[in-house]
Amino acid sequence: MNKPLMYLGQGLAYAMFAAVLGYFSTSPKYTHLPADSALVKLSFTHAGQRKGACRERTDEEMAKLPTNMRIRKDCPRERSNVTVELEMDGKQLYHVVLPPTGLSKDGVASLYRRLPVPAGTHRFVARLKDKEGGDFDFVRDETVLLTAGRVMVIDFKADAPGAGGFMFRN
């Protein structure tokens, strides 16, 4: 192959190299969330209530304990599961029972869940129960306008200022 042809061939090879880099560095486009959708993120960390009731130690029991461990209240370590459900427009969107973390099952229960939903106005009902048996302890019912691409975060803090419970951040 003569020199001009060689240089032409090399130019073509480099052009091909650049074309591959240029194209795949941005294309094809990736649609992460459809244009007419919004996103609900249900996420919190919360410790369920203790499975058993606390009791007061007697003076005899206290005396048997080392000095640095003499605490009057004696509480069981294990905590209850946390049950959560989210309803949208009357239909259940998500339901989960979260066990406590830790080897002794005394840690917090954590949740992070992304839920794509159609954009528009929706009525959301969030419920949470953090004890054994009985009804939900925390309920929040709210109608929200979710524009396309919007992220609504549903967080939970039992001891938040005010009533406590679910927080809808839109």
Binding site: S27, K29, Y30, T31, H32, A35, S37, G149, V151
Partner: peptide, 14 residues
């Protein structure tokens, strides 16, 4: 903007 979900992205496929 964490209040908005990324929609269409020009991914670097490499």
């Amino acid at each position: 903007d964490l209040t908005l979900a990324p929609n269409v992205l020009n991914l670097d496929w490499f």
